[in-house]
Amino acid sequence: MPKEEDYKKLINKVTRLVFVLFSLFLITGGLIVYYTVNPSYFHSTESKTIVNIPLEEDEDRIENGIHIRTGLINNEGLMTVVNNCTNCHSSKLLVQNRMNAERWNATIKWMQETQNLWDLGKNQKVIVNYLVTNYPPRDMGRRAPIENINWYYLKE
């Protein structure tokens, strides 16, 4: 037969278990009541705008005569330039270095000798023609010369 002490230990364990369960019941009930009274605590009441972004955007899209990804002018030889020149550097480098055909050919030769540029083959003529046609050299510098300057002197 079990002893009286064993009954007391069992009753203590059951009492603690009931207390823990009752506490959990009260906490859960409190959270449910709080949630029904104040739902904004758990999720925002702000409306959110969802923007649908296409999974694949056409990287070679042309708009208003401009290749969107590079900003280069859409003309014969564009994709040859894009595929060969923009692998290593920005298209902006092409636009800012306006050169004639001789200088472009010399630059390509320099890149092949020192920068590991591959042999362009027939593409070289297409690339140079595209660049000379669409981004020819300019006679003026980066800005017009400053004229009519009103100089002033600082007092010492």
Rank of each mutant, 00 (worst) to 15 (best):
D60K: 09
D60L: 11
D60M: 05
D60Q: 08
D60V: 00
R61A: 15
R61F: 11
I62G: 12
E63W: 00
E63M: 06
N64E: 14
N64V: 01
G65P: 05
G65M: 02
G65E: 04
G65F: 06
I66S: 02
I66E: 05
I66T: 12
I66A: 03
H67E: 07
I68A: 14
I68K: 12
I68N: 09
I68L: 14
I68S: 11
R69F: 08
T70G: 06
T70S: 14
T70E: 09
G71K: 00
G71N: 00
G71A: 01
L72D: 04
L72G: 01
L72N: 06
L72H: 02
I73Q: 03
I73W: 00
I73E: 05
I73H: 00
N74C: 07
N74A: 14
N74W: 02
N74T: 03
N75C: 06
N75Y: 13
N75K: 12
E76F: 04
E76S: 14
G77H: 02
L78Y: 02
L78N: 08
L78D: 09
L78H: 05
M79I: 08
M79K: 11
M79N: 12
M79G: 09
M79A: 06
M79H: 14
T80S: 12
T80D: 10
T80W: 03
T80A: 11
V81H: 08
V81G: 08
V81W: 05
V82T: 03
N83M: 03
N84E: 10
C85V: 01
T86Y: 04
T86H: 02
T86Q: 01
N87P: 00
N87F: 05
C88Q: 09
C88Y: 09
C88D: 03
C88M: 06
C88I: 02
H89G: 12
S90L: 08
S90D: 15
S91A: 15
S91N: 07
S91Y: 04
K92W: 11
K92A: 13
K92R: 11
L93D: 15
L93P: 00
L93W: 11
L94H: 04
V95N: 04
V95L: 05
Q96S: 14
Q96N: 13
Q96H: 07
R98G: 08
M99N: 14
A101L: 00
A101N: 04
A101F: 02
A101V: 01
A101P: 01
A101R: 00
E102V: 13
R103F: 11
R103E: 15
R103K: 15
R103G: 10
W104I: 06
W104A: 12
W104Y: 13
W104F: 13
N105P: 01
N105F: 02
N105I: 07
N105H: 12
A106Y: 06
A106M: 08
T107R: 11
T107Q: 15
I108F: 10
I108E: 01
I108A: 05
I108P: 03
I108D: 06
K109F: 09
K109D: 14
K109H: 13
K109V: 10
K109E: 15
W110I: 02
W110C: 05
W110V: 07
W110L: 12
M111D: 09
Q112P: 08
Q112V: 07
Q112D: 07
Q112L: 02
E113A: 11
E113S: 10
E113W: 01
